[in-house]
Structure formats: C-alpha cells, structure tokens
Nucleic acid binder design. Structure first.
Lengths: 224, 224
DNA sequence: TTTACCGTTAACCCGCCCTTAACCCTGCGC
DNA sequence: GCGCAGGGTTAAGGGCGGGTTAACGGTAAA
C-alpha cells in the first residue's frame, strides 16, 4: 500500500486524482496549500509527494526547497500547467524528482508515482509463495499474517527456495547462493535446513522436501 | 506549523485573531490575563507571543519584563490601542520585539508573527511523530507537552529515527548522519542509544527497537 | 575555581546464531 | 545381512554484537 501526499489547490482536480489513485490501491492525504503541505510532510511519512507548483501561500517550488532544507528527502513529483524548460530546471534545482505537465493522463501519474515510491523503498523486495511472504529488506518473513521466526541464514535459504518455487534447488547451488564461495566445512546446511523446517512447521503447513540427486524443494499445501 | 500564544482579554477580538491565524496554519493558545500567560509561557514552547498591553492582573509590560527576567526569550509582539511613542519605547525596553497598534490589519499581524517566528527559529524545523515533537533549531524535544531531557547527541539520534519513521535506520547510516565521517572508535552509539531510551522511557511510551541486520527503529504506541 | 554536564572509552554481561561434531535413521549395493 | 553414504537430529562451543554501567577528561556555566 503506497501512502502519498497530494498538494493541489484545485479541489476538483484533487478529488479526481484521489479517486483514481485509490482505485490503484494508494492511500492519499491531501493539502491545498503549501504551508499545510509542509506540516503534513513533517508528520505523516509518505512514500511520495505529488506537488502542484501553483499554490496559495507558498508555491510548490518553495515547498520543495523548504522540505529539502530540513532534510526531508521523500520523492516529489511536480505538477504544473506551464511547459517551460525554465520551470523544469527550477523544479529539479529545488530537489524535485519528477515533473508532470498538465493536462496529463492519470495512468502516467500512477506509473510515475509507483516508480518513485518503489525506487525509494529499495525496489521490489517482496517475495511471496502462497501464504508465505518474505521481505528481503526488512529481513522478515510471514506465513499469512503470522511472523516466521528464523535466523538470517535460514531466511537466506528460504529466499532461494522461494525464488526457485515450484522447482527444486540442488544442494550445490543452494550452498553457493547462501554462502558464496566460502562454504562451511561441515554440515551447516543440514542444521539450518532443520531450523527452517522447524520454523515452518510451527507456523503453518509449508515444508521443504528433499529428493536424492535433485535437491530441496518448497512445498506449500493448497488448502489454508 | 507555528505555535504561538495569544494574550488578549477582549474575547471577541481574541476569537477573531485565533480564527484568522488558524487559516494561516498556526496553532494558537490563548490566555486572557497576565498570570495565566506567564504560566502558559513556562509550559508550552511557543515560537512567538502576541501580547496585549491592557490586561487584568498583570499588564503586558509586566508580563514581558517578567518573562525576560526568567530567561524566556520567545519573540513578543505587543498590541495596544494607544499610539504613543512613550508606550512603544516602554514596550521595547521590556524586551518586546515588535509593536502593533490597534486597529490593525490581520495580514499585518500574520506577516509580523511569521517574520519573528522565522527569525527566531531559522525556519520550519519541527519534526513530529505521534506525540513526539522535536525542534531542531531550539534543540528541544517534547513528548506531548512533557519536555524530553536528553543530550545533544541523543537528540541527533532521535532526529534521524524520527526522519526515518516508521522505517528502521541501519547502524551504519545512523552513525554516519550523527557523527559524519569521523565516527568515534568505540561504542558511543550504544551508550547514547541507552541514554535516549532512558529518556524516552521516563516520559512516555516511545521506544527504540533493534532488529539484527536491519537496524534501529522508533516505536510509538498508538494510544495517547 | 568549582560545578555540572556531556562525550568517549573500557569492561562486562548476555543472547543470538553459526559452526561443528556426534549420533540416528534409511536406502542401496555387495 | 552387512557396510557405507548421506540426509536428519540434537547438543555443545564459541564468536559477534547489542545492552549496561562506571570512570575519565574536557568544556562551559556559575
């Protein structure tokens, strides 16, 4: 769920944008002037900001500059009716990340917002297989809504299994992708695999099966 | 968001001023006599004070003098119906920063308040996360209305955590943004983090949690 | 000069996690 | 039936790193 701030003084347009973005599953706060925008930015933590340049009280360029000055580096998309190069330059100089000229297609706004929000949050770091979900950035795994308690190594193994799903991963490449060149001398994989299985057992019915001469494979039973 | 104190015994006028200032996105506390004004000044941390001279109990000049005497240097704008040079002089002698003669245009009050608040605090440097508030210029932190007693370094750490909220901050970038290039050789972060946590504990239920391989994260419980 | 505060450092505790080793169990070939 | 190979299981050891505390030195205010 992307959470963003729309700063737009044209209430009709703002309403349209909000409606559209909500269809795209984005949560949208709204400010209609620059001052309000700044205080919302200080409070809410947005993944992106859509900022009109023509605003009462404090125009978009100033808002942008002010935000950057106090260390807020949330991605900002500027909106304006003017298609002047100098405007674009000014916008980017104040620290904007993107620029959109009115009138624009809603689809384009959506695409750009998603691109920016994604870039900021470290791009697509969610893996999911059935009810299993893994966030690589936060190093957290979920089974449904239940957190999966397991060590970093176990999670690395799980990541490989989920990437390969539904195919098996052979032992060699599993070791290679978890440990790199330096694989431990002994039977670490066995132990970590055991821990991972215990963790999976305790939280739901996902298992790791082994087939000789083939490798390990993630199994997620169909019924929840 | 500018937070200021209005001291005015004429309730009609006070209401008008408050309404107008709120449109300008300023938060406005109100006192109708000098004694109340002084106790509010001692508690809340205002960025400016609008102070009528004619007040019951303690007149504006006395309030101003008293405030300065106890070391409060919040910018003060005096309001009065009299347009006498001697009054102005007296006001400035007591430590006022500006002077406005009734009747005045609301716009003028707004401009002057903003100018003073800005001069004093540099510019908008408020961070807030839930009940936590941090003024970077004044180097003060509040939990609700309770001041958070902590050292400059602890506050710098808190600032980073609040900027990142609700995301975690990894150890490296935390050290980098607090100390810059020259990080201390030893475990200063641990100690400062400890102090920050103690300070947060003593004042409300905000905590800093740590997750291995991820980093530190500010937690603010939902209920106030 | 004294006091208080602050940042740094060091020493120690403790928990988590990786590794290792020892042992169990199963399947397969001799 | 026996031995071996290889995965499965369990427990012990040790290291890394955060948490806690106290002491030291410097600096600014009283």
């Amino acid at each position: 769920m992307i959470k963003l701030l729309l700063v737009e003084d044209d209430l009709d347009l703002a309403g349209n944008i909000i409606d559209y973005l909500e269809l795209e599953d984005m949560l949208c706060d709204h400010a209609s002037n620059g001052v309000a925008a700044l205080s919302l930015m200080a409070e809410g933590h947005y993944q992106a900001i859509v900022l009109d340049i023509n605003l009462p009280k404090l125009d978009g360029l100033q808002v942008c500059a002010r935000a950057r000055a106090i260390g807020n580096d949330t991605p900002i998309i500027m909106l304006t009716a003017r298609d002047q190069l100098s405007d674009k330059v000014a916008g980017f100089e104040q620290g904007a990340d993107d620029y959109l000229v009115k009138p624009f297609a809603m689809e384009e706004l959506v695409v750009r917002v998603k691109a920016l929000a994604k870039r900021r949050s470290g791009q697509h770091t969610q893996l999911s297989v059935g009810p299993l979900q893994l966030d690589i950035n936060q190093k957290t795994a979920l089974y449904g809504s239940e957190p999966l308690k397991c060590s970093p190594t176990a999670m690395a193994i799980l990541e490989q299994l989920m990437r390969a799903y539904p195919h098996p991963v052979n032992r060699q490449s599993l070791i290679a992708s978890v440990w790199g060149e330096e694989s431990p001398d002994s039977n670490s994989l066995k132990v970590h695999m055991h821990n991972l299985r215990k963790a999976l057992d305790s939280v739901g019915n996902a298992t790791v099966s082994f087939t000789a001469n083939v490798g390990f494979q993630l199994d997620v039973s169909e019924e929840k």
